[in-house]
Amino acid sequence: MRSDAATPTVRILETPEEVEAAFEVFRIALVGLPPLPGRATEISEPGRTFGGYLDGELVGTAASYTTHVVVPGGARLPHAAVTRVGVLPTHTRRGVARALMNAQLSDARQRGVAIATLRAAEGGIYERYGYGVAGRLEVAAVASRRAVLRPGVAGGEVVRLARPADAWTLQREIYERIDPSWTGAISRTGEWWTVRRLRVLDAKQPSMVAVCGPPGAETGYVRYHPAGDEESVVVDDLVTADGTARASLLRYLFSIDLVETVKFDGLALDDPLRVMLVDERPVRSESIEDEIWLRLVDVGAALAARTYRGSGEVVVGVVDEVVAPNAGSYWIGAPGAKPTTAEPQLTVDVAALGAVYLGGTSWRQLAAAGRVTGDLSLVPTADDLFATATAPFCGTFF
C-alpha cells in the first residue's frame, strides 16, 4: 500500500544482490535501457551505490565513480562521477531523489571529494541539488569526401586498426598514458571501461578502434561504429596526446572507403576542426548540448585549487542550503581564493558558482539570468578572473 507520508531512507548497498536490484530500479526508471543481467557489480564501484527506500521497498538509486577532474590551471581534484540516478515511476515526487542526492553529497564530502559532476537525462532536475551547467558540447556531422585538411596541418603518423581481442585493453592503456589534461577531463575507472565494453557488445553492432603511433607508445585512438545507413560512421571516443595524432586520426576517418558522413557525438565548443579544413562547409552543426553538470562539494578547496586571471579582486558570497560549511564569503583574486569574513560584493547560489567554475558559463550570463545579486558593476571583474583559454570539455560519458 502506498503511503504518501512515508519518509525516504537511504543507505549504501553492499551485497551483489542489492546492487543488482538497484540497477534494475535504474533500468526501469530510464524507460528503454537494456538489461545487463548479472553484470551490475562489474560496472559498480564498491561502496558507491546508494539505495532509496520507502516503506522498506527499494524504489530509487544513485551511484558514482571515484576519479579526478582537471580544473583551470591544470590541477587534478578528487571527483565523484555521479551516475545511475533514478526513481521508480510509481514513487516519484516523494523526496526519494533529494534524499539520495543529499546522502551521496554528504558521503562524497566526508571522503574528501571536492567536485561532483553528472550527465543529465533531463535538464530541469539537477539545479535544485546544487548542480550547474559548467560545460557544453557540439554534435556535428562532416561530409567526409569534401573534408580536406589544410596543407600546413601536421599529422602523418601511421594509423592501424586494433585487433578486436586487444581493442579495449589498448584504449585504456592509451588513455591512461596520455592522462588528458584539458579543463574538464576526468580519469576513467575500471568499472567505467567495463560498462562501455558491455554496452558495445550488447548493441550487437560492429565497433572499430583505430590507433596511431608506434606499438607500445601510441599517441591516440578513435573508436567508431557504423550508423543506421551504410554510408555513415559515428565517432564514440576520440582521444589524442597532441595535434599531430589528432590530425592523423581525422585524415583516417575522412578517407574510409564507402563512408560519406562522419558524425561526432561530442566536440568541445572551441574544437579547431573547422579551421583545420580548406573549406569549413562540410562541417554541419547538429546541436549544442549540455555536457558537464558540476556541483562544488567543497567550495573552499575547489576555489583554491584553480587559477585566476586579471588583476582585479572580488568577494563572492555563496549560498548552499545543503552543505552548510560551503556557505559564506570567499575572496578571489589573481593570487588565488580563500574564505573571508568580509561582506560579499557578488552573491550566487552554489549551482550558479558551479556553472562558472570551469569557465564554460560567464558571470555576465548569470547576471542576465538574474542569478547574481550585489554590486553588478563587478561582474566584468569576476569574468576576467574566471576566464579560461579553452572551453571546458570532458569527453567521457558516464
Score class of each variant (00 low, 15 high):
L277E: 04
F398Y: 09
L294W: 08
T347P: 12
S232V: 09
L303F: 06
V379F: 00
T189N: 14
A302R: 06
Y224D: 13
S362L: 02
R223T: 02
R172L: 04
G266L: 00
L137R: 13
A75W: 04
P37V: 05
R177F: 01
T49N: 05
G156M: 07
T67I: 08
L30S: 00
G220A: 01
D229G: 15
T361R: 14
G370S: 02
T244W: 00
D257L: 10
L385S: 05
G300F: 02
A342V: 13
V19T: 12
A140Q: 02
A81N: 14
G216Y: 00
I115E: 11
G132S: 07
T347H: 03
V262G: 07
V159T: 05
V379Q: 00
L198M: 13
L376P: 07
T92Q: 10
G333F: 09
L54W: 05
K338A: 15
G74L: 07
P37H: 14
Y175V: 04
A99W: 08
R76T: 13
S44K: 13
V323H: 12
R84N: 08
G190K: 11
Q171V: 05
T189I: 09
V70K: 04
G60T: 08
L88V: 05
P380H: 05
A355L: 05
V350I: 15
P72R: 01
V315L: 12
D236H: 02
V315K: 09
V70C: 13
V209P: 05
A342K: 15
V234A: 12
V200P: 00
A116L: 07
T340D: 15
G374I: 14
V153L: 11
L376D: 01
V96E: 12
E24K: 08
E42S: 14
V10N: 06
E286Y: 02
V71H: 11
D4R: 04
R196Q: 15
I178Y: 02
R11F: 02
E191Q: 15
